[in-house]
């Protein structure tokens, strides 16, 4: 059995950060085998004469294990137990096809090995035996497993890149506001590039909560105009409109965000107490809203400004504890570390 695992190309021993988990989650059940089962023990010098070979080398009936491998592989695939006789080209093409769509240009000319059945001499040559067919299929599948592994690696990279960009956007906005208010507390800390230092990344275009169902066009329009003003640094008018939005649509879609930005604008305006109240309202009135981790973080910042470091740390720790995956958590952690 161990040799079959080897042929399927599952990975053992070596750990591959999150990519590995992604692969082991589905594709090949063989991956779940304990590493010791699949590979020879860590290399010791001296027995280099011995070389691990395929199981087929030991079994005169090589096709049997091949069939086993294929059955195993087919079973694990989306198709369920595919008959072994099924045309390889078709089955591989089917499996390969869905992965092509969502994989962007990073995936480029995904060579599906189906194209390789090269020059055959029609008619004349005797047809390939079942063993030959199985071996051919096995090779293609092994190739395909590796190709899919590559696709996973590339998607993983894209996800990480997107997450990083989002984080940087967040920091960029945060810093910009802080800079304009003359405050430095909310800046991203050392090593974080400011958004306007040669970066070509798109600016923040909208609050994440926009575009949800149930909004009224006027509400959305009001929010967007306030948001744009804020981006144009017209803080006073922006604050007025955020306040109006809250007055007119207290239960509206954008109320939590409006409270949040009001808090932010108060803070810039040198009124940490008013800012504190706004942030508290976000947390208390809309505990499930996606602005809560940000508001909690900002409470930590505001309490720092109010010279209450203990309270500040309390809030900062809460962000890290309750929203460990949020961008606010990493900011909070950094800020808390500076306080301690």
């Amino acid at each position: 059995m161990s040799a079959l695992m080897r042929m399927l190309g599952q990975r053992t021993g070596e750990r591959s950060s999150s990519i590995n988990e992604a692969t082991s989650a589905g594709a090949v059940p063989a991956k779940r085998t304990a590493p010791t089962d699949a590979l020879p023990a860590p290399v010791k010098q001296g027995n280099d004469r011995q070389r691990v070979r395929l199981a087929g080398a030991r079994s005169p009936h090589g096709w049997r294990w091949l069939a086993g491998v294929l059955a195993l592989y087919s079973f694990s695939s989306v198709h369920g137990a595919a008959p072994v006789e099924e045309s390889v080209a078709e089955s591989v093409a089917e499996k390969a096809a869905p992965s092509r769509g969502p994989v962007s240009e990073g995936q480029r000319n995904a060579t599906i090995p189906v194209t390789s059945p090269a020059p055959t001499t029609p008619g004349a040559a005797p047809s390939t035996s079942q063993l030959g067919q199985l071996f051919y299929q096995l090779q293609l599948l092994r190739d395909e497993v590796q190709r899919l592994n590559g696709v996973i690696e590339e998607q993983q990279n894209q996800i990480e890149r997107l997450a990083r960009e989002q984080h940087e956007r967040y920091l960029g906005l945060d810093r910009r506001i802080a800079e304009l208010s003359g405050g430095t507390i909310a800046s991203g800390g050392p090593g974080v590039p400011a958004v306007n230092t040669g970066s070509v990344r798109p600016e923040v275009i909208a609050d994440p909560s926009s575009g949800q169902p149930g909004e009224t066009p006027t509400e959305r329009g009001t929010y967007e105009s306030a948001y744009e003003m804020m981006q144009r640094h017209e803080y006073e008018s922006a604050a007025e409109i955020f306040q109006r939005l809250i007055d007119e649509y207290p239960n509206g879609q954008y109320a939590p965000s409006a409270f949040y930005w009001l808090g932010e604008l108060h803070r810039k305006n040198g009124d940490p107490e008013a800012a504190r109240q706004s942030f508290v309202l976000v947390v208390d009135l809309y505990p499930d809203h996606n602005k809560v981790p940000d508001a909690l973080y900002k409470l930590g910042v505001v309490y720092t400004q109010l010279d209450e470091p203990d309270r500040a740390i309390e809030y900062l720790d809460r962000v890290v504890r309750e929203y460990p995956d949020s961008t606010a958590a990493s900011l909070a952690q950094q800020h808390a570390a500076e306080l301690r």
């Binding site: 090995p113 390789s116 059945p117 020059p119 055959t120 035996s129 030959g132 067919q133 051919y136 293609l140």
Partner: peptide, 29 residues
């Protein structure tokens, strides 16, 4: 077996591939 000529002892591969082609598999058989 059919032609009586010596069997080819060379098999070929696609670029950056190590997959045996079906025709070559028949020869190897």
């Amino acid at each position: 077996e059919d032609t009586g000529r010596p069997l080819s002892r060379v098999v070929h591969f696609d670029f950056d591939k190590a997959v045996l082609r079906p025709a070559d598999i028949r020869v190897l058989e």
